[in-house]
Simulated assay, not measured.
Amino acid sequence: MHTSKNLLICTACGTQFDLPASQPPKGCRICDDPRQFVPPTGQTWTSLSQLRTKDHRNVFTPDPHDPRLTSIHTEPKFGIGQRCILLETSAGNVLWDCIAYLDEETEAFIKGKGGLKAIVISHPHYYTTHLDWAKTFGCPVFVAREDEEWFNRKDGEGCRRFVEGGTAEVLEGVVAIKTGGHFPGSLVLLWEKKLFIADTLVTVPSALYHVDRLPGTTSFAFMWSIPNMIPLPPSELHKMWLALRPFEFESTHGAFNGLDVRDKNVKARVLESMKIQAKNEGWEDVAILKETL
């Protein structure tokens, strides 16, 4: 396993730095950014080797509707607590997003499924230990060019591949779509009408119950800062919609386990949610309110 086991990892966001764990800086530049936060207890650090002595493990959860999808998350919760998702496609396996913890069991599980052809990461909060993952599985990792300022490790082996334009075909039938919004380069991933959204589109609680939905019931939020609850303005919502509009999707798969919305009308619900957000921010004559399917 090609892991940098003694490099510094932020305990709040899981980002790995090109610094030894014995020489921590004052703060984490990811958590100091106004989109994120430093916990009330202050900045603390760890490393992969330290995590392995604290009974952390990754849990593999097959999707009940599609066995080709497996969610992977860490217990006890570490960092933000997001999942990554293994997609077993006919062109090879893709890992959507990344988590900090990587061990021999995870390596064996993924290699037992055929390894990885590519990793795609939605935004800088989930960069975590992505170079270790890429080296372990001998695959490229796709990230948005706009967000490269947030890298905290040098890519000495050329693992990173940049999504330069609005879309990139990662493998045959697997397309990364750059929506922006949360970060300038925020990505989603489309495969077989499944849209993997991380928190580029934030799945809200009212999205999950489909029966007797009253008018005005939203399904998604669109946030500049998720933990600090700062929403995006309608101009950004419109840019995001224009990026998504050409594509068809019938499910969305969010950043955490259980945030899967399966509905043939889910694309309409994305647009509806954008309009609900814009109207409730007080806007009346903006471009997103004039959009239709």
Rank of each mutant, 00 (worst) to 15 (best):
W191E: 11
N152F: 06
V143G: 02
L19S: 11
N280A: 00
P76K: 03
I110H: 05
V266N: 01
P24D: 09
Y209I: 11
P140N: 03
Q50Y: 06
W283Y: 15
W241Q: 08
L293N: 06
G81F: 02
Q16Y: 00
A21V: 12
E192D: 15
T200C: 10
H210I: 03
K154Y: 04
P25K: 07
G92W: 06
L237S: 05
I177L: 15
I30K: 00
S49G: 10
P64I: 13
T218Q: 13
V170H: 10
T70H: 01
I226L: 13
E146N: 13
E164V: 11
G115T: 06
Q277I: 00
G156W: 01
A221F: 09
A144L: 01
D103R: 03
G14V: 08
L190A: 12
K267R: 13
L171A: 12
K135F: 00
W283S: 02
R161D: 08
N280I: 01
C159A: 15
H253Y: 11
S22P: 03
G14M: 07
C84I: 05
G112I: 09
T129P: 03
P67I: 04
H2V: 03
E107Q: 11
A255P: 01
V94G: 02
P184Y: 10
T53D: 13
Y126H: 13
Y126C: 05
T74E: 08
D199C: 05
T70E: 02
T61N: 06
E157Q: 14
L237C: 09
T11R: 15
S47A: 12
L242F: 00
G166K: 12
S4W: 08
F37T: 06
I85N: 04
G115H: 04
Q43W: 08
T74N: 07
W150C: 03
A198M: 06
